[in-house]
Every structure is written in structure tokens, then in C-alpha cells.
Write a protein that binds this DNA or RNA. Structure first.
Lengths: 241, 241
DNA sequence: CTGAAAGCGCTAACAG
DNA sequence: CTGTTAGCGCTTTCAG
């Protein structure tokens, strides 16, 4: 194991001592305040840069009552869709000066609630999340409501709880499936199957309905043998490790 | 858009006011100090629980000089290996009371340096990271050294910089490939190919050497036609979006 | 058993 | 142009 000595990071106070000025002068100088002379600003900024000064994140968050970080809760990451969404969130967040704290619910309602609990202490400014499978199946959204009531905003995506009053970003699962069927039919296909790993979730149901409607629209018969639903237990087996 | 009013969270001060005691009494009561009478502790703890009090994360971090959060930098998440590692880290971190701030370098040296810069302000207690491809190719590890010198520990995994003095967790790429060849040969296979998307990285080179040594060990001829290296530019094409 | 005060690092009135 | 002070939420001596 490599060794680590606790190394105190440079603070505004240290800089103040260095130049025999007050800490507020340093603070203002670093923030380029008009109140400070150019000479003072120059030397202080130079010193700060050279010595790798960085304003302490926790002090700022405490003062500003804002952490500039977003809590992201994913049902899983072992799935291309969610990994892509994550990449998108992380990227957009960074571009806007936000960090991202990410947790995986692993489809568990309990874990999801725990995560929310853990982060609802001023660690983050708000949540972006997609519900755990179990949460949707149980229809238990208490933790979401409490969080929102306690002043932490939530944005849901993909697997959303429509009954919760918050912003949501969703795909048009119904028309997506419907259009796909029509597209395949136009390409000349006659036997179009429906395979799903989430027929128990709302998004799965919507896709199935869209699939059926699509068949109907193009005049193809619905055939039960062409519908494959991977069951919950098999799915779980797959999800684990 | 849903609306959000800024809602002040319950603080120790509010509780103190509620019971006409000092904030230090509340603090001690909540921490179950022996200095406080059972009666006082009971009523304060009850009130805190009922009103969903949570100690402010930033105040604690500031006071303790420790954030209980780890910065994780991944080259990509669109890759089963890294997604799995991430899951493992996140899980272990949570179990030990740590949060995880995750950023994606997207194989870019610049982005990697930026991320480190952004998080080296007291946001995290240390890093767990796997180098960006570009970083390894450039052999430019300044940012790692600076970070460690400034007192933020780094643990590297998989794609590590051996010259950096820090803890590392790596796979035995050389023997992994070697054993695989021997295993396949034992199974009766004669034409064993080597396909790699990272022949330019150390781990890729080690695997290749192991592959060759394995062939030698079992007495199979090395055949250049059985070696496929997906080139950097093709790889990049694949990595993007 | 309870409270006052200092301090973590920083900002922002307000004085001078 | 620079400094003093209070305060963000919390813990921790030190007094009482």
C-alpha cells in the first residue's frame, strides 16, 4: 500500500497570512472584485495559481446552499440503454458545471429508498432517476413523494411514476412499437415477433399494445406464438452479476 | 415543468428553538451524548425523527475534513467490463458509507485532467480511476502526480501507470492470455486467433505476449494471419456515441 | 446536565 | 482600497 500523509490544502487564510492582508481582501481579490487594487489582485491571484489554490467545495456549498451536484439513480448499469443515458447525463451535467453522484438501485425498492435517504442531506441539489423494477411492481412511491415534499426536486426518465408530480422524460413506447411494426411490414415482412424482458412494466405494456395496434393497422394477424416474454425470475438471474 | 419552492431543511438550530435549548444541547442529544439527560435526548430524538432531520452533509464535511465520497473516473461506461467494475465499486463504497462521484473521461486526456481538477477541491477524499487511452498513449501523467502531491490519494485499476507511486489493482493479462491458449490447446484446438481492440495499450501488449508464449509452450506455430488488431481510428469510431 | 464560544473555509454587508 | 464581522450548519472544548 502506498502511504498518505494528510496534507492540508491551501486556504484563503494561508494566503492572507502570506501577504499580511485580511482574508476578505484575499477572497475579493480572488473573485476579481472591483474593490481591490489591481496590484493586490495580481499578486494574490498569481500566488494562488502557483500554489494550486482551489476554493473549498464544502465551504462554498454550505454558504451558497447549493452543491452543484446531481444525484443519479440507475436501476442498473449493465445495460446499453442505461449506460448511454448515464453518459448523456454526465456529459450535460459537466458542461453546465455540475457533478454527478451515481448510485445503482439494482432494481431493488429498498436500495432505491436507501439511496434517496442517504443523499437527501444536502449532498445534492436534486435527483435524476429511473425507477427500480420492484418499485414499479410494488407501486410504492412514498419515498419519492417525501423527497419532493422535503424540497429536493426529482426528474424521472424512462420508467416513470405517472402519479408523481415531477418532471419526466419518456419515450413514446406505444408509437415506437407501432411504427416499428408498420416499418417492418412495409419492408415486406409478414411474421413479426415481439420479445420483451419487461412485459410487467408500464413501458413493456405500452410497447406490447403498440405492437398489437401496429399489426392491426397493417392487417396482420396477431399470433400468440410470436410473443416471447422473458420472465421476471429469468430476468433476475440475468441481472445478477 | 413542475414547480419548486426553495424549502429550508430542518437544522439543529430550528430544533433548539423548538425546545428552548441551545444548539449544542441538540447536537449532543442527537449524538446520544452521555452529557445529556435521557428525557431531553428522548424528546429531541423523537422530534428529529418525526420531522425528518438530517445533519447537513456539507457542514459535516467541512468540520470533519472528510467527505466520505470517492471520485471515480472511467474511460467509458459503454463496455461491459467497466460497467461491471463500476457496479462493484459503487456497491462496496455504499456498504462502507461512501458515496461515489463518477465521471467519464471518454478516453480523452484533457477531459481526464479537467475532471481531476474539478474534483480536487475537497469534493472527494480520493480517486479510483482507470486511465484514458489517450493518457497512456501520450505517456503524460503530470495530472496524476500533482494530485497525489497535493494530498489526494489515487488508486488505479486495469489501465494503470506503473511509474506512478500509488496503489493499483490489475489483472494478470500476460498469464491470462497464456493460460487461455493452453486451455484451448488442451481442448484440442489448433488454430487459436488473437483479436484485440487495444494492442496499443500495455494491457493489450501483455496479452499478446502471453498469447505468443502460450503458443510456444504448447508447440503451436505463431501465425500472423490469426492476429487481428482493431485500429485506433476504428475503435474511436466505435466508442463515439 | 446545559450553554457559550470558537472554528471548519468562504462570502458579503458594513465600516473605515 | 482594505478590514471587521457575522453567518452558512455542525461539533467540541470549556465553563457553569
Amino acid at each position: 500500500m502506498a502511504n498518505f500523509v494528510y496534507m492540508k490544502k491551501l486556504t484563503i487564510k494561508d494566503i492572507a497570512k502570506e501577504f499580511n492582508v485580511s482574508i476578505s481582501t484575499v477572497s475579493k481579490a480572488l473573485n476579481d472584485s472591483y474593490e481591490i487594487s489591481q496590484a493586490t489582485k495580481d499578486k494574490i491571484q498569481k500566488y494562488a495559481k502557483e500554489n494550486n489554490y482551489k476554493p473549498n467545495f464544502n465551504a462554498l456549498s454550505l454558504k451558497n446552499r447549493s452543491t452543484k451536484t446531481i444525484g443519479v439513480i440507475m436501476p442498473t448499469m449493465l445495460n446499453y440503454f442505461f449506460a448511454q443515458v448515464f453518459k448523456g447525463i454526465e456529459d450535460a451535467a459537466n458542461k453546465n458545471g455540475y457533478k454527478v453522484i451515481t448510485c445503482i438501485s439494482n432494481q431493488s425498492h429498498n436500495k432505491e429508498a436507501e439511496i434517496i435517504e442517504m443523499l437527501s442531506n444536502g449532498s445534492i441539489d436534486g435527483f435524476i432517476l429511473s425507477m427500480a423494477k420492484e418499485t414499479e411492481l410494488k407501486n410504492d412511491f412514498k419515498h419519492f413523494n417525501e423527497t419532493i415534499e422535503n424540497g429536493t426536486p426529482i426528474v424521472m426518465f424512462d420508467r416513470v411514476a405517472h402519479s408523481i408530480d415531477c418532471d419526466k422524460v419518456i419515450a413514446d413506447d406505444y408509437n415506437g412499437a407501432l411504427n416499428t411494426v408498420e416499418f417492418l411490414h412495409k419492408k415486406g415482412h409478414k411474421k413479426i415477433a415481439f420479445i420483451s424482458t419487461m412485459s410487467d412494466l408500464q413501458i413493456g405494456k405500452q410497447r406490447f399494445l403498440g405492437y398489437k395496434k401496429g399489426l392491426e393497422n397493417v392487417g396482420l394477424p396477431f399470433n400468440d406464438d410470436l410473443v416471447v416474454n422473458i420472465l421476471e425470475k429469468d430476468y433476475k438471474k440475468y441481472e445478477k452479476k
